[in-house]
Amino acid sequence: MITEHLFKKYLMLCFLLASGIFCFAQVEPVTLSEQSSHCIQCHGNRYYKFHNKVTGSEVKKLMNPYYFIDSTKYVQAIHSFFSCEDCHAADYVNYPHPSELKLEPKLSCIDCHGGDETFAKYQFDQMAEEVANSVHKQAFGEQFKCEMCHDLHSYKLGARKENSKITEIVKQDNEMCLSCHNNLSKYQILTDNQKPELLKTHEWLPNQELHFLNVRCIECHTPVTDTVMVSHKILPKEKAVHLCSDCHSTNSILRDKLYKYAAIQSRNEGGYYNSVILNEAYVIGANRNKYFNIISLLILGLALGGISLHIAARIINKK
């Protein structure tokens, strides 16, 4: 009996210790400000409830999906330290929200990041210039905004983050394009045109699924640039890359795009960056390895040298 009691105590102790270690191992969560928590009560859920003063009843309504904020994503996002009222009018705290707030101009990325030395390394001004020349801005003018691709409430650093995995960068970046190009209702915010079926328009692409999973849309849909880390000049479809050899060669444009970060990092370390390029993805033609090249040339040289000597000996022997 005593043993059983001790055993239970021991188990409890282990459990407490394990939970302590587990809690300790968790990343310290970002806490929402009091004001943001107030907003997230409704905007953090698919449904919201309020008391209708006119009818005197409790009402449950569906949240507009575009006004829904995923609080888990929000606390992990790069702007998570902001409170809602930092960007939105303080009057939003009242419900029903005052109707004139709908007309309130929203902050754009450049409003905060433009011309600011603190963010110079992100090249926001050059990006804005590229966006101005992109097919989206050319077609839709001021209607097209940064946040249509970069959801400010969930945006995280992708390629610029240290040690980020190429597969994760690809997923995150492609989701931005697909958020409209795979969603008719969002696509038609800007145009009444029918949304092209991506699988059909990319039917010409061999191993379509592999390409979609391993490279970003912008690899083919933006020009190669050495001024901006991530090109924001989306090209018209006629100018997109269609030549396999643009990527599948040792001169692959991917070196200047998706693998730029890894390549620069490796070059700085003085190594042969091919191995880094191929660390997570394979590009036909780009798997030349200088050690293999040297060894194979050496073996080939020895074989040809041996054959030449044998031929010479045969000629001399015949005389």
Partner: peptide
């Protein structure tokens, strides 16, 4: 070993 500038054969 093909090079974009000097392709031995079209890719």
């Amino acid at each position: 070993y093909g090079n974009l500038d000097y392709p031995f054969l079209p890719f």
